[in-house]
């Protein structure tokens, strides 16, 4: 803000008065999208499904729908966690690495303890510990969350490679619990989707119906105001990163079950960006205070359908990335227009 005033005074920046009365750019800037984020996502989804369905009716087959669901489940769990961190105005780009680390931990503890439950618990504990470290660095080291988790992204990946010697570890593919997680189903719906759905519902309830959720939104919306209303900022921020770590532990378990072994790096690399993509597409504001779990889930479905549909239609996978990127830019630009962001200086 100070910088902006500075610029104005020193005649560098555009003048606010001039911008709003000036040409097509201004008209575009004033454009307001009439419906909310979720409605836009639903419309985009409907359009996409129609286009794909017309050209490839097998898209609607229950086998294909299950494929979409199980594909988005792991990234989906991380996107839910990411949503919470973004709501408080933070970001966690180490979630992919935590998933890899917890996957390896899970498989190795399973092998040495000889049972599934120590493995599952160790994955969650490891995830929680990773999240705690992130939170402590951010709060007490006073480090920007992007930088802090960029550092731990590298560090956690390194730890996972160290303890696994860089290779897939353990074999859980014969254990009935892991088989159930990977390929089982309840009421015809795969377990992977159930786990994702339960985590999403739990996060939604937390955000929407508890005082914790209200305070998380308050911190992201205006941290000074939250502090002056008696919210303990440090505790909430650390807890949010712990929660994210623990949820990434769930993702690690799902990954282990799905691939049958502990995967230090492959299988989780790139998930952090996918989770941020989904959250942003789902309406999370990067400066915090705005975003919902239903929005993120819709965005996940949209991304899953896009990927799957383009596969079915035989579109080159390089084009799929271009499509994903375009979709994200379009969504965020629309979101900025709607929120009436200031139009001078750099976006925050």
């Amino acid at each position: 803000m100070t910088q902006t005033q500075n610029d104005q005074r020193l005649d560098h920046a555009a003048e606010p008065g001039a911008v709003s009365t000036n040409g097509a750019a201004a008209r575009f800037a004033r454009l307001r999208v009439p419906f909310n984020q979720n409605t836009s996502l639903l419309i985009a989804l409907a359009v996409l499904v129609t286009i794909i369905g017309v050209q490839a009716p097998e898209f609607f087959g229950s086998a294909n729908l299950r494929t979409i669901g199980t594909t988005i489940a792991i990234a989906g769990v991380l996107a839910v966690a990411q949503t919470i961190v973004i709501i408080i105005g933070g970001l966690d780009i180490s979630v992919g690495s935590i998933t890899g680390l917890t996957s390896v931990t899970c498989a190795m503890v399973f092998t040495s303890a000889g049972g599934p439950f120590p493995g599952l618990l160790s994955a969650l504990a490891a995830g929680l510990a990773c999240g705690l470290v992130n939170g402590l660095i951010i709060v007490y080291g006073r480090v920007n969350p992007v930088i802090a988790t960029l550092a731990t992204l590298a560090a956690y990946k390194g730890i996972a490679q160290l303890i696994s010697d860089g290779r897939a570890q353990g074999y859980v593919g014969a254990d009935p619990i892991f088989i159930f997680i990977a390929r089982g189903s309840i009421a015809g719906i795969p377990t992977l989707i159930w786990v994702f759905a339960l985590i999403a519902v739990a996060a939604h309830v937390l955000l929407k119906y508890t005082d914790i959720g209200r305070n998380l939104y308050a911190i992201g919306g205006n941290d000074k105001a939250a502090r002056l209303a008696g919210v303990n900022l440090n505790r909430y921020i650390i807890a949010a990163y712990c929660l994210t770590g623990a949820v990434a532990g769930f993702a690690g378990i799902l990954l282990t079950a799905k691939t049958g072994s502990g995967q230090p790096v492959s299988g989780s690399e790139g998930l952090e960006l996918y989770s941020i993509t989904a959250a942003a597409l789902g309406g999370c504001a990067m400066q915090g205070g705005r975003g919902t779990i239903p929005g993120t889930v819709l965005a996940l479905v949209l991304l899953g359908v896009l990927e799957n549909g383009l596969n079915i239609l035989g579109v080159n996978s390089f084009w799929q990335n271009v499509a994903k990127g375009t979709l994200l830019v379009a969504a965020v630009v629309i979101q900025q227009r709607r929120s009436g962001e200031r139009r001078i200086g750099l976006p925050r």
Binding site: N215, Y217, R290
Partner: peptide, 15 residues
């Protein structure tokens, strides 16, 4: 320093 501008009167009042 006091308001969550993008939240409702309810959310602000009960904070």
């Amino acid at each position: 320093d006091a308001l969550l501008l993008e939240r409702s009167v309810r959310d602000n009042a009960s904070l």
